[in-house]
Nucleic acid binder design. Structure first.
Lengths: 126, 126, 126, 126
DNA sequence: GTGGTCTAGACCACG
DNA sequence: GTGGTCTAGACCACT
């Protein structure tokens, strides 16, 4: 199940990518599982097929899904967990920005760690 | 000193906002300090004054800076430190996204907390 | 329908903000209603899209409207109704100025209250 | 005594005009009373003489003060309280805008009248 | 199509 | 000198 937030600044297609990746990681979707066709998902989400197609293209580029012509789209074999230094640098930069905002809102070290823990737990449940 | 990354997807005016906030938080800029005029900073950064003005206006809206008509722009006296539920929700959402990315890269709870602490300490170095 | 007074000292973008707020308050625009696109309104009013965009961005910050990427702009679901101390101080200052002017024109307490009531009733006519 | 708010959007010279007019109306300044020279007031307020001069010019145009060459500047003879329809229309428009803002902040008829009364009483005291 | 960002100018009021 | 507003374009990402 994918839930979209149309008001978010995050593009719809990125939200789809993120949620499918998350489902794969949490093993709700396993290698070989079929995922809905572009049209079907587009209908389900009431968005244009182009947006879904864009998400699927990116997922295929990242080798998370595979499209088999005439058959459909499937979760790819195995996820590689490779430490990506470049990606980590980006994450750290963005985390730092958010931590700065929190600090300016009056959050101290304890508050921030508590918030992070809270978000982490919420995330594991969903 | 403000350094722009023209290749970043982050808008230039947001980069300016972030770096000025940063300088305020690290006490490089103190209440009452003047910041460069719109035109001067625009010249320095080789961008148009409009872009700098947009950044300054947003900073004023957030009460980080104050403009005095015909005089210039200055760091505001009191910093906010007011709880803003809406803003916090946005921050939490963005933090969750980053935490998800980390989890997908193999980070567990301990690793994440360590990373956050590391970023926090880097940030606090005054 | 928005009517601009080009001779007014009030900036065009503020006039747009005010009139849209006005229409929302009088229920001519209801939550979920679409408002004209930036370009369309700009054409209608014979102004540049940038000016309309500025008005829309301020309205979005005030959570009067919501923009959905690639779709358009809509009246927000919930209207604020949150006490904003800073904003109230500004309003009081401006009201005091007008009350002073009225007093200097010979209005006493009764006259002022009558005038306020008259303006209020005019405004409430839905 | 004149008190300036440098952070206000209201121009300094307008603040001076407003406060002198107010003092005249409240009879703290009576016809024939001398007011400080441009330079003296500028020194007192730590502003440039040009700004004071601008205020005095406007006050003279409105026949509230008179400049006698070589003698100084004085409060003019009698204030005419003439109902100025054009001015009243402007005041009503601005009052309506503020009332709209208050209504959108959740103020009802009673709240608004109370606020107006409160502002009116504060004004009479100062 | 939509809004968001940016450029390169201009004019204005203010001090 | 300062910031505020506006114009008339442009390019971009998203849907």
């Amino acid at each position: 199940m994918i839930i979209l937030d149309y008001k978010s600044n995050k593009p719809i297609y990125e939200q789809i990518i993120e949620q499918i990746k998350w489902n794969v990681m949490r093993r709700y979707l396993k290698p070989g599982d079929a995922i809905p066709s572009v049209r079907k998902l587009a209908l389900e989400l009431s968005i244009t097929p182009g947006t879904v197609a864009k998400a699927y293209q990116e997922l295929e580029r990242q080798q998370i899904i595979e499209t088999i012509r005439g058959k459909g789209t499937f979760i790819a074999g195995e996820l590689e967990i490779k430490p990506d230094e470049k990606k980590l640098v980006g994450i750290k930069k963005r985390l730092q920005t958010e931590l700065m905002e929190l600090t300016m809102m009056g959050y101290d070290r304890k508050d921030i760690l508590e918030l992070i823990m809270e978000i982490y737990e919420e995330m594991r449940v969903c």
